[in-house]
């Protein structure tokens, strides 16, 4: 594989994790526009743990995931009081807050960024991405995931059939944040250098787009969305300056014709039918 192809492949792997982090939270009906912040925390933490403390990368990524997940739970609690566009605004604010924290936080290099991470193979990145994707796909077949969907479909009814909606929503936030944290750590090692500007609002939006474009009701949706959104700008290079405009037009077209994303749950219903051991 050429360096170019390997680089793109690694980008897709990391983008997939970013998409999954949004997907898991969105499964409970919560839209987070601040997931780049969890990515930043994971990126800085994994980098610091390896560069300063000499931890192996895999252990550092696990710790980064745990720490981001914990932060996600903390963010998840105030998020309980907010819905829809207000939740989106609050998470956006959280993202900007985190970005400016790293901008001012001298030990992490501030605006100058942080370096010292060694290169990491595309295979290593994909080992993480594929495992986490499989993990989410399996989770989608669990009863817990039905609880997620129940909260998304009708929170009040979910509450009244005995589901602890608070725990479910906060848990989803923590899980999504943990995935974003791992994505951040891998991103830092893939880029070899990180700075706060890499974890801005645009990054959070990208993560949401992977889900919206690929499909927000099945985990392979974000995989398709991440692949398309990483590769499309490359394929559209011949358009030179018009590249981004064409990209935007494509996006609008897809959303006009498939609002639920390119892939949706309906396509998989035949597959999952018998597995709940139905009559």
């Amino acid at each position: 594989m050429s360096t170019y192809a390997a680089g793109l492949s690694a980008d897709i792997g990391i983008a997939l994790l970013g998409g999954l982090s949004v997907y898991v939270i969105l499964a409970t009906g919560q839209l987070s526009l601040g997931n780049a912040a969890f990515m930043a925390v994971g990126a800085y933490l994994a980098s610091a743990l390896t560069v300063y403390a000499g931890l192996p990368l895999t252990a550092a990524l696990m710790l980064a995931g745990l720490a981001s997940g914990f932060l996600g739970v903390l963010v998840g609690f105030p998020a309980l009081r907010l819905r829809g566009i207000y939740l989106a605004m609050a998470t956006l604010g959280f993202g900007e807050m985190t970005r400016s924290f790293f901008l001012d936080f001298a030990p992490a290099g501030g605006a100058g960024g942080f370096r010292g991470m060694g290169p990491v193979s595309t295979a290593y990145i994909w080992a993480w991405s594929a495992s986490l994707l499989v993990g989410v796909v399996l989770l989608e077949r669990s009863r817990l995931w039905l609880e997620f969907r129940a909260v998304n479909d009708d929170e009040r009814a979910a509450d009244l059939i005995g589901l602890n909606t608070t725990a479910i929503k906060v848990g989803a936030f923590g899980l999504g944040a943990a995935i974003a944290g791992v994505a951040g750590g891998l991103f830092a090692y893939h880029q070899l250098y990180i700075e706060p500007g890499m974890f801005g609002f645009d990054r959070s939006i990208e993560m949401v787009l992977y889900v919206v474009l690929g499909g927000s009701t099945v985990a392979v949706g974000p995989l398709l969305g991440a692949t398309l959104l990483v590769l499309l700008p490359e394929f559209l290079r011949f358009l030179a300056d018009w590249r981004l405009a064409a990209f935007g037009a494509l996006l609008i077209l897809v959303l006009l014709f498939r609002r639920q994303g390119i892939i949706d749950r309906g396509m998989f219903r035949g597959l999952s039918r018998r597995k709940w051991a139905t009559p």
């Binding site: 009863r143 039905l146 609880e147």
Partner: peptide
Amino acid sequence: FRSMTVWEHLVV
């Protein structure tokens, strides 16, 4: 729950 089959309603 609009996204769930009858059976899934019972499981959840």
